[in-house]
Write a protein that binds this DNA or RNA. Sequence first.
DNA 1: TATTGTTATACTCTATAACTATA
DNA 2: TATAGTTATAGAGTATAACAATA
Lengths: 157, 157
Amino acid sequence: MPISRSDPETAVAAAEADDAGRGYVLDEQIGFVLRRAYQRNSMIFAERVPGPLTPTQFSVMCRLDEAGPLSQNRLGRSVAMDAATTKGVVDRLIGRGLLATRRDPEDGRRHLVYLTAAGAELIDAARPAAAEVTEETLAPLTAPERRRLLHLLSKLA
Amino acid sequence: MPISRSDPETAVAAAEADDAGRGYVLDEQIGFVLRRAYQRNSMIFAERVPGPLTPTQFSVMCRLDEAGPLSQNRLGRSVAMDAATTKGVVDRLIGRGLLATRRDPEDGRRHLVYLTAAGAELIDAARPAAAEVTEETLAPLTAPERRRLLHLLSKLA
DNA sequence: TATTGTTATACTCTATAACTATA
DNA sequence: TATAGTTATAGAGTATAACAATA
């Protein structure tokens, strides 16, 4: 802990002012801890989820399953990926026969992305596994702690 | 959006087997939220930290600054990266003249990694910026919330 | 034999910029 | 002009596996 936290306001002010670097401890930084937590989650994900699907691929397919066909841009935004990233992820899934696209009759610029039968089948099998990933990731926490963590993290995103 | 569950037997079995997947909402999963939070942190990092250094590169240099010269493997473990990843990160930083290595006189297998003068100078400039990144990332939270979040996240890693 | 480090390979994610097609 | 999508390019992080050198 860098500085005395007896007074939160003072602590924050100090962190911004002169103390911005003094007392900086890597292991206590939000970015460092976030990376490690996400890394552990990803490892558990790779162990448990069939396909194999990466977390990002799963997100895309899960979203399509929840929301139905979406244009590539909307799909990407809904899972927080930019257009180029989305295209890469979608292309790989199309190549594996899990997704397909068709032109939007309402707007010729749009390519609606949707799950193929194989994709729908896989996501049905993957979702319970993904639920287990969540469970295992959160295993060190009690139920109230889990809710609190999710709530706090949501505020950051 | 599951497949049709009209078959009664299948439906019952599915009700239990699927229980982990029913009510699964992507946006509420710890992995999804972690990825978004880390992504936002990384974006802020890229905006503010000079070098430019990525969060991972910064971690490595910051650790060396805190702990002094380390063997490549120990360095990697201390920032939660495997040997191959560590090598990639270290090589890029060596290529930029920010790190250097020398053989450990005590153990010929080891390459001690250390900050060059340029590296030490850069990390001194980057640390205050990184402190600002932490501040900006956590801006939506009060001081007690920040402590709680860090504490909960630490339990996951 | 165990540890440290290297190398090769592969995949994935991310972003920027320039471009085409459509509204 | 604005939006949707594509393509090219570049840089990174991650992991596995096979290998060499050293202890």
